[in-house]
Amino acid sequence: MQNPLISKLEKHGPLSEEEKEVLQRITARTAIFEPREDIVPEGSTPSHSSLILSGFAMRHNHLPDGRRQITAIHVPGDFADLHSFLLKTIDDGVSALTACRVAFVAHKDLRDVTRNFPHLTRALWLTTLIDGAVHRVWMTSLGRMDARERLAHFLCELRDRLDSIGLVRDDSFELPLTQADLSDAFGLSTVHVNRTLQELRSDGLITSTGKVLTINDRKELRRIAQYNPDYLHIDQKLERD
C-alpha cells in the first residue's frame, strides 16, 4: 500500500520522485501501538513526530480532576504531533483508539526537509492549517450545536476524511469510538450519545454493525448538521515554484 502521507500530500498536487523518496525514507522507522496505548504522552518532549500509518488515534486533554476532553480524531496520513518539531513539549496527548502503526519522523529529518524541500515544507504546513480548521469547526459544533447536530456533523466529517484516503465503501466506514469516547469528544453524557445515535438509527439515517457505521441518507444527515466540507480543503491545490 502507498505511504498514507504521500497519498495525503498528493491530494494537494503531485510530488516529485525525489520528494516521495524523502518521505519514504523519513517515515521508515515504525512501531505498533495497542488500543488505548499512549502514542504521544501528555507533557512529553519527543525527538520525533509521530505519523499515523494505519489505525485511528485520538488527541485529548485532561483536567487535573481527571475529566477528559477528546479534541481530535486522527486517521492514517495524519501527524499526531508534527508541531512537536517546533513546540518541543507536547501540551496535550495522543493515544491509539485502535491498533495503530505509527512512523517516528525524527525532528532532525524534518529540519532537513524544511531546509531542502520548500514544496514539501509548504505541504506539511498546509496539513497543520487544515488540522486547525477542523479544531475551529469542532469548537463551533461544541459551542452552538445540539447533540443530534454535533453527532451528525462528526459522522459527515469522518466519512469525508476517510473517503479521501480510500477507507469508505458505499458510505460504510469504521467508527472505532465507544460511547464514552464520543461523550468525551462532544461534551455529552454516554446516555445522551446513545440516545441520539439510536434516534438517528430509528430515523433511518444510519445503521451500524459492530464497529462499522453506514450512512443511509447522507443528504439528510448533512442537512441536519448544516455540514459543508469546505473546511477540510481535501482537494485544495498547492502551487509549485
Binding site: 447533540a147 454516554t190 446513545n194
Partner: peptide
C-alpha cells in the same frame, strides 16, 4: 425501547446508577 448496544464498564451498580442519573440530566437539560 432505544437499545444500548454497547454499554459502559463501571465498578458497581451504584456507579452505574449515578452515571445513568447524570446522563438523564444531560438529556433533560437539552
Amino acid at each position: 425501547v432505544l437499545h444500548d448496544p454497547e454499554g459502559v464498564d463501571l465498578p458497581d451498580i451504584e456507579a452505574a446508577r449515578a452515571e445513568a442519573v447524570q446522563g438523564i440530566r444531560d438529556v433533560l437539560a437539552e
